[in-house]
Structures are given as structure tokens and as C-alpha cells.
């Protein structure tokens, strides 16, 4: 069964801007799907339409077979949403926020209380349950929205940049948690700017740009389409003669730093042997950018755009 099936979805906003130009998208039940794309690509618009926060202009959306035009209530009941922007009542305490959301989905109070405790503990918020939500830290607020989205135990969980502004440790624990939930059968769709996130979590990926899906495939295929990786090597001594780099398609970026573009099939051992033979001592190695980012840039076909800055930010976050 498909958890989400989108056909020819189009959105023209009131100001005449066309945010979606007829996209098709399928997410299988039990899947873990990443929707990637630069700022303004149309990710949140798509999610907005699926969750009925945005009116579509044309096209169809089915959630577990329920068309949002005919069976909106059933479709809504299947979905849990973690929106991109904070949207809980800042003056309400954590626990009531969760309990209210459960109530809207028809979960009786007693069960709602048990689940609220379960998810708040899971997301490390139980001690804050009586705190006014305004007082939570940024990362806690994001986790609160995750707990809120899960309390009615949706079959499809949609997260719009769930880890934006969340520190590395918490991000990793959120990943672990999402994997757990997915393993228990919940279909997950997420958008993210941290491409590492998509790479580690998701099995399928759609890339959206300018309101069009330009790639829709599984993560393995996507990564295998990438054949060159760039390695940045720091040398102990300054490199005098850079002619030794030519066989590796390399270049020197400053005295002690070289960059090598290597095919994925290339053995790193061979490289190091050659460097050692030339008395070059490598003190550190890193990849210049995440492979997905490189591919991403290739696909979207832009260089010095917000995306480039974005991949740097993602790199810095690592």
C-alpha cells in the first residue's frame, strides 16, 4: 500500500506565485523518505497541502488510499505533523499541549495520559511537563512538536526540518528515535537541510527544485550515481613540488593542503603509499563535501547559490 500518493499537484499562491508545478510523488507504507531541496523549492508547500494547511490549486493527494478531497477526516487521522515553524501555544504547559492534540484526534484522556508520558520520556521532556512551553530551549521545543505529532500514533509521520537548530548529540538521539519508530511500522517523510541526515536515515529520496521533482529514487542509487569524491589532505610539511599530484587529478590549495578528486573505485591505500614514497606525511583527511551535497549541486545545477552556503553550513555543523 502507498502511504502517500501525490499526482500532478499544483499550487499557485494568492499573489500568483506558482510554488508547485505539477509534482508526482509516492511513498510506500513503512518507507523512510527524504524530501530535499533548496530554500523555497516547495517542500513546505507540499507538506502543507498534504496536511490541509494549504489549499491545492490542482492535482490529487491520497493518504493510505484516502483522497483528501473525498475523505479528508480519514486522511488527516493517519498523519502526524512536525511543522517547520513552532506552532504550539507559547502560554500553555508542555503536558496540556500533548493532551489537547491527543484529544483532537479522539484519543480518550486516560490513554492520552499514558502516551503523553511515554513520548515525553522518550524525548527527554518529562521533567519539563509542567513548564510553560515558552520557557523551553529551542531543541526542547522541536522535541515537543515531535511528541505532539506522535501522541495519536499516526501511520504517517511528516517532519519538516525537525532537527533545525538542534545540537549534534540531540540530533543523533532524535535519529535513533525516528529509526525506532520507523522500524515499528510508521512511515516517515522528512525534509532537511542537513544532507547527512537524509543519507543516514532515509531509504528513498525525492529532490525538488523550483516546484518540480527533479529526482525520485532510492538513496543507494542516488549515491552510486556519484563517482568522484574530493578528499582534503593536510600535510605535515609544505609541499614543494606539486607535480606528484597530477596522477590523482589533484591540486594544491595552500602550502600544506592538497585536494584530490578520486573515483569511488580508487583504493585509498594506493594513494597513501604514493604519498609516503614521496616523503609526504598526511596529518589529517576529510572529504570536502558530503557526496550527496555534491550530487545535489550537480542536479540542481547551481554553484554559488544559497545551496552552496547551505552545504557549507551542513559541513560546519558536522
Amino acid at each position: 500500500m502507498t502511504a502517500l500518493s501525490i499526482r500532478n499537484l499544483t499550487k499557485v499562491y494568492a499573489n500568483g506565485f506558482q510554488a508547485l508545478k505539477g509534482i508526482d510523488l509516492d511513498v510506500a507504507e513503512g518507507g523512510f523518505y527524504a524530501l530535499l531541496g533548496p530554500n523555497g523549492a516547495g517542500k513546505s508547500t507540499t507538506i502543507g497541502i498534504v496536511t490541509s494547511l494549504v489549499n491545492k490549486t490542482a492535482g490529487s493527494v491520497k493518504v493510505f488510499g484516502h483522497d483528501i478531497d473525498q475523505e479528508l477526516e480519514q486522511a488527516k487521522a493517519c498523519i502526524g505533523l512536525v511543522p517547520q515553524e513552532l506552532n504550539f501555544n507559547q502560554f500553555e504547559e508542555v503536558l496540556p499541549i500533548i493532551l489537547n492534540q491527543a484529544g483532537y484526534y479522539g484519543v480518550p484522556r486516560k490513554i492520552a495520559l499514558e502516551r503523553a508520558e511515554f513520548y515525553l520520556r522518550k524525548l527527554d521532556l518529562w521533567d519539563q511537563r509542567e513548564l510553560m512551553s515558552q520557557r523551553l530551549s529551542g531543541g526542547m521545543k522541536r522535541r515537543l512538536m515531535i511528541a505532539r505529532a506522535l501522541v495519536h500514533e499516526p501511520r504517517l509521520l511528516i517532519l519538516d526540518e525537525p532537527t533545525a537548530g538542534v545540537d549534534l548529540e540531540i540530533r543523533r538521539s532524535m535519529w535513533k528515535f525516528l529509526r525506532e519508530i520507523n522500524a515499528q511500522g510508521t512511515t516517515i517523510i522528512l525534509t532537511t537541510h542537513y544532507l547527512e541526515e537524509a543519507e543516514t536515515l532515509c531509504r528513498n529520496v525525492g529532490i525538488i527544485n523550483n516546484g518540480e521533482i527533479i529526482k525520485n529514487t532510492d538513496m543507494k542509487t542516488l549515491l552510486s550515481e556519484l563517482d568522484v569524491e574530493t578528499f582534503v589532505l593536510m600535510l605535515r610539511q609544505p609541499l614543494q613540488d606539486n607535480s606528484i599530484l597530477s596522477p590523482f587529478n589533484g591540486r594544491q590549495t595552500d602550502e600544506n593542503t592538497i585536494e584530490l578528486d578520486l573515483p569511488r573505485s580508487e583504493s585509498l591505500n594506493r594513494i597513501f603509499q604514493q604519498l609516503s614514497a614521496n616523503n609526504l606525511e598526511v596529518v589529517s583527511v576529510r572529504t570536502r563535501e558530503n557526496p550527496l551535497e555534491a550530487l545535489f549541486m550537480g542536479l540542481v545545477g547551481i554553484e554559488e547559490t544559497p545551496l552552496a552556503a547551505l552545504s557549507e553550513a551542513a559541513g560546519a555543523a558536522r
Partner: peptide
């Protein structure tokens, strides 16, 4: 207030008629 604080979305996405 719910519109302004955006928490009306909690209701809008839920299956409450």
C-alpha cells in the same frame, strides 16, 4: 490568538470536523 500564535494549526490538521 490561536491564529496569531499559529496553534490553530493543531486543530486544522486534526480530523475534528
Amino acid at each position: 490568538g490561536a491564529k496569531f500564535g499559529k496553534h490553530i494549526e493543531e486543530l486544522l490538521i486534526s480530523p475534528v470536523p
